[in-house]
Each structure stands twice: as structure tokens, then as C-alpha cells.
């Protein structure tokens, strides 16, 4: 496999009977993902897209032995759904939902950590291993199988970069969307480690943005542990950025110098990471480096 998921990964969709859940479950199934069950409390016994629906995660996991779940549930109910998933033995939990209170995410993350599981998100597009499977909402059509690993804090900007890579002939091993919230599950660091260990990944692309310190920690890890070439694009590098203002993502807000794109780019460059000024420069950088 590439990282985190492949075509054999069995996935439960939490909130599968909802509008978002059923729409994206369909697209996941069409892409080749093994969606083996859905969970909606009170709707156990129904079927959606030929997939059985259960009332609880425990029943769904016992019936299917699935190891992954994806949450398409409104923000007020995410905390409970996420803990239920992890307490039922789910190893890879992906939360697509936007607007989850930050303390809920913090406590979910703690439980995930205690159970030795992995959390992706919230407020994220999910992940895709091209040609095999996807969890979440990344459009499969723009991806192609290959050996570039992508890890990103953004959604549509990631699609932009994936497409530039695909059109330039660089397929992807796995693309991981970390999400735009200040407190999130796996970050750049953990993703870099996964890509470092994955034999299918030869290049790693990091897509960051203003705010927080994830990119800076990634730079330190690259110096210490990563032997594969790493490339980066950071959104919010213009002089237009206003400190103290939130730019759409809750995490994209600059407090002090360390959160600026300029500072992040400086630290990434110092760590030997090749940085691009525009999304289309990423495939050029890979080409130059080969």
C-alpha cells in the first residue's frame, strides 16, 4: 500500500443516511473504496447503496471487522460519533465536518492517541490513494497513481496542486488533507514519517498556509529524519495578509512573526526544502531535482 489506506481498507461511513454522507459514500464506492457499512442511530436495518446501516459503531465493527471510519455528521454531534468510533476499535478515523469546537477536537485527539489510532481532520477533505481508494471528498478524477506523497492543510488548493502534478506526469502515492483547524489530528510531521517509510513514495509535497507552527515543526523533522526530497507551497505569502484577521480557515490567522508565510518559507528553505512561488512551480521543482 501507499500510506494509511489502500483498496483492501474496509471503511464505515458515519452519517451515511444523510445528504452529504450518502453523496460522498457513493463517490467513494465508485472510486473503489470498500465501504462495508454505514452507521446512523435509529436507522439500523436499512440499506443505502446496497450497504447495510447499523445503529451503533460497535455493531458495525463486529459485523464487518472494518478498521476505518469517516464522519459526515453535523458539528454538534461529532464529539460523540468520534469517541464511539475509537472506542469500537476503529484505527483510522477521518472527520470531514467543519465547525467542530476546538476543545471537542482536543479531547477526541487525546482518546485517539490513547487508543493508538490515527485521526485525520476535522474540517478536512480526507485522503486518497490514487487508483485504489479514497476516504472523504477529494475528486478522484484529478489524481493519478504515482510516487509523489502530498500532505496539505487545504482542500481546493490541494486539488490545484494534485492536478498540476497529474498533468505534468507525476502521479501520487497518497494525498492527505490535514484540515484547516488550529487543533487537528495528524499533522505534517506524522505524515512526513509515514511517507518516509513508504517505498512507493519518492517525493513529498507539503502544502501549508499562514498561522500555526506545523510547517516549522515539519522543517525540523526533515533535517533530523527525512531522506526523501521535500517540496513546499505556502498560501498567504503576499503583503496583503492582515495580522490578527482570520482567512477562512480557523487556523489561518497570523499572531506574531512566527505564523507568517515569509517566516515559514525561510525555515523550510533552511531545512533544504524546495519552495514554490506558485502552485504550477511544484512539478517544475520536482523535474529540476531529478
Amino acid at each position: 500500500m501507499a500510506v494509511l489506506l489502500d483498496k483492501s481498507t474496509e471503511v464505515i461511513v458515519q452519517g451515511m443516511t444523510g445528504k452529504q454522507g450518502s453523496f460522498h459514500a457513493k463517490s467513494m464506492i465508485e472510486y473503489g473504496t470498500q465501504v462495508v457499512a454505514g452507521v446512523t442511530p435509529g436507522k439500523g436495518g436499512q440499506e443505502v447503496l446496497g450497504v447495510p446501516i447499523y445503529d451503533t459503531m460497535k455493531e458495525a465493527v463486529e459485523a464487518t471487522q472494518a478498521t476505518a471510519s469517516v464522519v459526515f455528521i453535523p458539528a454538534p454531534f461529532v464529539y460523540s460519533a468520534a469517541l464511539e468510533a475509537v472506542d469500537s476499535g476503529i484505527e483510522l478515523l477521518t472527520i470531514i465536518t467543519e465547525g467542530v469546537p476546538v476543545r471537542d477536537t482536543a479531547r477526541i485527539r487525546r482518546r485517539v492517541f490513547e487508543q493508538n489510532a490515527t485521526l485525520v481532520g476535522p474540517n478536512c477533505p480526507g485522503l486518497i490513494t490514487p487508483g485504489e481508494a479514497k476516504i472523504g471528498i477529494i475528486p478522484g478524477a484529478i489524481c493519478s497513481k504515482g510516487n509523489v506523497g502530498i500532505v496539505s492543510r487545504s482542500g481546493t488548493l490541494t486539488y490545484e496542486i494534485i492536478q498540476h502534478l497529474t498533468l505534468s506526469g507525476y502521479g501520487q502515492s497518497t494525498c492527505i488533507g490535514l484540515g484547516g483547524d488550529p487543533v487537528r489530528g495528524i499533522d505534517f510531521k506524522e505524515s512526513l514519517r509515514l511517507f518516509e517509510q513508504d517505498p512507493e513514495t519518492k517525493h513529498i509535497v507539503l502544502v501549508g498556509e499562514i498561522g500555526g507552527t506545523g510547517e516549522q515543526e515539519a522543517a525540523q523533522l526533515v533535517i533530523e529524519e527525512i531522506s526523501k526530497p521535500v517540496y513546499a507551497f505556502i498560501a498567504g505569502n503576499g503583503t496583503w495578509v492582515k495580522p490578527g484577521k482570520q482567512m477562512g480557515h480557523a487556523g489561518a490567522i497570523v499572531h506574531g512573526k512566527s505564523g507568517t508565510a515569509q517566516e515559514k518559507l525561510r525555515i523550510l528553505n533552511e531545512a533544504g526544502i524546495l519552495t514554490a512561488n506558485t502552485p504550477s512551480e511544484i512539478p517544475n521543482k520536482i523535474k529540476e531535482n531529478m
Binding site: 496539505s152 492543510r153 487545504s154 482542500g155 481546493t156 488548493l157 490541494t158 490545484e160 484547516g180 502544502v207 498556509e209 499562514i210 507551497f233 498560501a235 498567504g236 505569502n237 503576499g238 496583503w240 495578509v241 482567512m247 477562512g248 480557515h249 489561518a252 506558485t278 502552485p279
Partner: peptide, 10 residues
């Protein structure tokens, strides 16, 4: 998308 909006401004 927030990231794409920022990249557009850039």
C-alpha cells in the same frame, strides 16, 4: 476554499 482564496490573492 480558504487555501485557494489565499493562493489567489498571492
Amino acid at each position: 476554499g480558504a487555501g485557494l482564496s489565499m493562493a489567489t490573492c498571492d
